[in-house]
Amino acid sequence: MSFERPKELLKPVRRRFIYTTFALAVLLELIPLPDFIVGWLPDFIGMLILYWVINQPRRISVGAAFAFGLIADMATAGLFGQHALAYSITAYLALLRQRQLVMFNLGQQALSVLGLMMANQIIMVVARMMTGSAFAGWSYFLPPLTSAILWPLLTKLLLLPYRHHNV
């Protein structure tokens, strides 16, 4: 097992920082953007939930995922509970394998994130189709791809404030 991430000592993560990142993600969801960009845009709230579940499982777990899912439902004007359902299930799945995931390097993590985000979308599609909506098209599964591609960047970005020195 190769450790691309140096085993460095990080400052303890503050609760305030976690909630700030979530607030920023909600704001990003609210930005009005042209349709062709929105189709590619990763699900920031879902990515953050996975990140914090993997890296801070004692702070953010199924309950928080459920709560932020409800907020995401509000922000995206979707059906009430669809994001909550998907996020709590994927958060649980990530939590089951959390000790393994946190040891992965960024590439492996990105792959598992791809799978988890895909599961997110599948759950939401099933939920929507069960409640009578039409299939939204295969482009609905594009955001997990961009999420996986952006995962290393997100990790680096969120680690930045917690390094002791800018190495």
């Binding site: 004692r58 777990s61 199924v62 309950g63 995922a65 459920f66 899912g69 409800l70 059906l79 009430f80 509970g81 669809q82 909550a84 359902l85 709590s88 299930i89 958060a91 649980y92 939590l95 089951l96 939920a127 069960m130 409640t131 009578g132």
Partner: peptide, 24 residues
């Protein structure tokens, strides 16, 4: 740590499904 993750998940899924049904 409060209830086990499985229990939490069950509660969350139940609530979400109830919300989904209630909403739709």
């Amino acid at each position: 740590q409060g209830p086990r993750p499985g229990t939490r998940l069950a509660a969350a899924v139940l609530t979400s499904v109830l919300l989904l049904i209630g909403d739709s």
